[in-house]
Simulated scan of single mutants.
Amino acid sequence: MLSGTPRREFLGLLGIAAVAVSCGTATADKGGTKKLKYQGWAGQVTLPELAQDLGHLGDVKLDWVGNTISGPQDIQSAATGQTDFGGAFNGAVVKLIAAKAPIKAVIGYYGSDKDAYNGFFVRQDSAIRSARDLIGKKVGMNTLGAHSEAMLDIYLRKHGLSEAESKKVERVVVPPVNTEQSLHKNQIDVAVLGDILREKALENGGVRPLFTDTQLLGDFTAGSYVFTERFIRQNPDTVRTFVTGVAQTIEWSRTTPPEKVIERMTAIVKERRRNEDSAALKYWKSFGVAETGGRLADRQFSLWTDWLAERGQIEKGQVKPADTYTNDFNGYRKKGSHSS
């Protein structure tokens, strides 16, 4: 979808957007639906899942329809009505909106900070020490056209590689659970590892970071949950309950000891009985959302509108950051706060 993604995937986005425009999402029940179809992640607990378990979603219920390993795929499913909401890297949200999909970001759900960041790791004995050393090497990541590829491109550009040189750095899709193993087996030269999988790899040893996304951009909210505009019009109360509940859960995770959050998430995985391993949850530290309650701002999208325009993926000015999101449904407020 973004730089390095085959042209057919971009054309596929146009088709997805056309379907979304013509069909939208499923028609809401009278008074608005209270059930939200969604995709999860194997062995992980998403913020909405945690919010539901904590009782923060009120009478709104989640309806799991399967798992995904790709943010872009997740929001495509939301755009076409296969699910009611999805979450992805903000650059992927911009790209889908540029392809005329009528979606709107409503809350940030993941990001990078000192506890939750994506690192580009090499083997401890690797000769790779700089951006230029990556020419001709393989970088393993969970999906193309999303957060990891964007960070790689920014890193290469920041360290002076030309577009032609950057294209010689091979991006390889590797399932997240296999990325560390692929690095140690020399199947890839660099492994992109985040959060739980990063902590597990560091504990196992034998790897070192070449760079991290926080070294490039500081603390930032990287991805958002989206609904279609039609779904929002038909179900405003449900969207408000969902967004505010997720916001409340973000703040709950900040003020609750990590071991208690892990204990809660582990129980959720065991209780849902999806034949998955919850062992890696012990490495969780943070969701990494930078703003209070996951509120969104232009800066979270302008970086990607500019970046995509520079690479010819969208036209300059085609997508205005302020048009990609809304905070209208986020009712979370800090105690004693009267700010909007």
Results as ranks from 00 to 15, higher is better:
residue 166 S to N: 10
residue 147 H to L: 09
residue 177 V to W: 10
residue 153 D to M: 02
residue 153 D to V: 02
residue 156 L to H: 04
residue 180 E to L: 12
residue 188 I to D: 00
residue 180 E to A: 12
residue 184 H to K: 15
residue 187 Q to I: 00
residue 140 G to T: 06
residue 155 Y to W: 04
residue 158 K to Q: 13
residue 174 V to P: 00
residue 186 N to D: 15
residue 166 S to G: 15
residue 132 R to C: 02
residue 172 V to E: 06
residue 172 V to D: 07
residue 157 R to V: 09
residue 138 K to S: 09
residue 173 V to Y: 06
residue 160 G to D: 09
residue 150 A to P: 03
residue 172 V to M: 09
residue 144 L to W: 11
residue 173 V to N: 08
residue 146 A to R: 08
residue 178 N to V: 07
residue 192 V to Y: 00
residue 186 N to S: 15
residue 150 A to R: 10
residue 189 D to S: 07
residue 162 S to M: 06
residue 175 P to G: 03
residue 184 H to W: 14
residue 134 L to W: 00
residue 155 Y to M: 01
residue 178 N to E: 07
residue 150 A to Q: 09
residue 169 V to C: 02
residue 185 K to P: 09
residue 160 G to R: 04
residue 155 Y to H: 02
residue 192 V to C: 11
residue 147 H to A: 12
residue 180 E to G: 13
residue 148 S to T: 12
residue 170 E to S: 11
residue 188 I to H: 04
residue 144 L to V: 14
residue 189 D to N: 12
residue 188 I to A: 03
residue 140 G to P: 04
residue 142 N to G: 15
residue 132 R to G: 08
residue 139 V to A: 01
residue 168 K to G: 08
residue 142 N to C: 13
residue 142 N to Y: 12
residue 134 L to T: 01
residue 181 Q to H: 13
residue 142 N to R: 15
residue 145 G to A: 08
residue 173 V to H: 03
residue 147 H to T: 14
residue 174 V to R: 01
residue 185 K to V: 11
residue 162 S to E: 10
residue 142 N to E: 15
residue 138 K to D: 09
residue 164 A to E: 15
residue 137 K to G: 09
residue 143 T to G: 05
residue 147 H to R: 12
residue 181 Q to F: 12
residue 172 V to P: 03
residue 187 Q to L: 12
residue 176 P to Y: 04
residue 166 S to K: 15
residue 142 N to V: 14
residue 170 E to D: 10
residue 180 E to V: 07
residue 157 R to L: 10
residue 179 T to V: 13
residue 157 R to S: 10
residue 187 Q to M: 08
residue 160 G to V: 03
residue 165 E to W: 03
residue 186 N to W: 11
residue 183 L to Y: 00
residue 182 S to N: 13
residue 140 G to L: 06
residue 152 L to R: 07
residue 145 G to N: 04
residue 173 V to M: 08
residue 170 E to L: 13
residue 149 E to K: 12
residue 154 I to Q: 13
residue 174 V to L: 04
residue 151 M to D: 08
residue 154 I to Y: 13
residue 191 A to P: 01
residue 180 E to P: 04
residue 183 L to D: 03
residue 139 V to D: 01
residue 185 K to E: 15
residue 145 G to P: 04
residue 169 V to R: 00
residue 185 K to T: 14
residue 193 L to K: 02
residue 184 H to V: 14
residue 190 V to Y: 02
residue 144 L to T: 11
residue 170 E to R: 15
residue 189 D to C: 06
residue 156 L to N: 04
residue 154 I to S: 12
